[in-house]
């Protein structure tokens, strides 16, 4: 449910280019980065929820704008193009080398956003590669505006946003004056596929690019390790007789009961 009454919402959506969740991830020889060869990159899935919400806000009121911004390498242009194809009006690529520290990324985004007129900044609640969950809150802090994270429902009415958030065991509803930052959780909406018309129209939409120098990271990446190989499956027995042993193993070894 979303309503926008008498409100033009100018949204800025922060998106990130990440490896496809179905890609086979390998760590480079230096042990510090992913080996990108043969890996398909996509828009961070949580950012798709954010973008979809921005598009729906615009469609519901018939007014407003949607700007997609990304900090990333040259190739992130493709991700912006996907955002334009889905319906964003404008794309902005802040070209920079990859950074493991959310703080420097948030800084670059906040600097760009602060120079623009906006009502709402939408982000995914986290990027599925770094999983830091830092950027939305940091951007809000730097802009000096409120931030609602893990949002599953959003309403915007006359300059006020009402967001339903996921919390442990339930939900919480918060309200704040715009401008503000919303970090989208799965369930907020069902992101659309871009249409072929959208893809073709994207060519004619503005996509600006500029180099940015990221500030000195405060967080240093010192190593990556792959998850441990999965243990061999174990067959405990067959039929009802095997149940007690299975329960014991689930409780004592797997510790899931």
């Amino acid at each position: 449910m979303r309503r926008t009454e008498g409100m033009i919402v100018r949204s800025i959506v922060c998106i990130k280019r990440v490896p496809d969740s179905e890609a086979r991830i390998r760590i480079s020889a230096d042990g510090m980065s992913l080996d990108p060869s043969g890996v398909k990159f996509v828009m961070n899935p949580y950012d798709e929820f954010a973008l979809e919400e921005a598009l729906r806000l615009k469609e519901a009121s018939g007014q407003g704008s949607v700007t997609a911004i990304t900090v990333g390498p040259e190739e992130a242009r493709e991700t912006l193009r996907s955002a334009l194809a889905m319906g964003a009006d404008e794309g902005v690529l802040l070209r920079a080398e990859a950074a493991a520290d959310g703080l420097v990324v948030a800084r670059a985004l906040a600097d760009e956003i602060a120079a623009r007129e906006y009502d709402l900044v939408l982000c995914g609640k986290q990027a599925i590669d770094g999983d830091n969950m830092q950027v939305p809150a940091m951007v809000a802090q730097m802009l000096g505006v409120p931030c609602a994270t893990v949002v599953v429902e959003l309403r915007v009415e006359g300059g006020v946003a009402k967001a339903k958030r996921e919390i442990e065991g339930g939900h919480e509803v918060v309200e704040f004056d715009l401008p503000g930052v919303v970090a989208a959780q799965k369930g907020l909406n069902e992101p659309r596929y871009p249409s072929l018309k959208g893809i073709m129209a994207a060519k004619r939409k503005p996509l600006s690019e500029k180099d940015v120098t990221l500030s000195e990271p405060k967080l240093e990446l010192v190593g990556l390790t792959p998850p441990p190989a999965r243990p061999e499956p174990q067959i405990v027995g067959e039929g009802p007789d095997a149940v007690p042993e299975l329960v014991r193993l689930l409780r004592e070894e797997a510790k899931v009961l």
Partner: peptide, 13 residues
């Protein structure tokens, strides 16, 4: 670029 986008959409779909 356009063909790639269209192809990726088809593949995802």
């Amino acid at each position: 670029d356009e063909q790639r986008e269209i192809l990726l959409l088809a593949r995802r779909f």
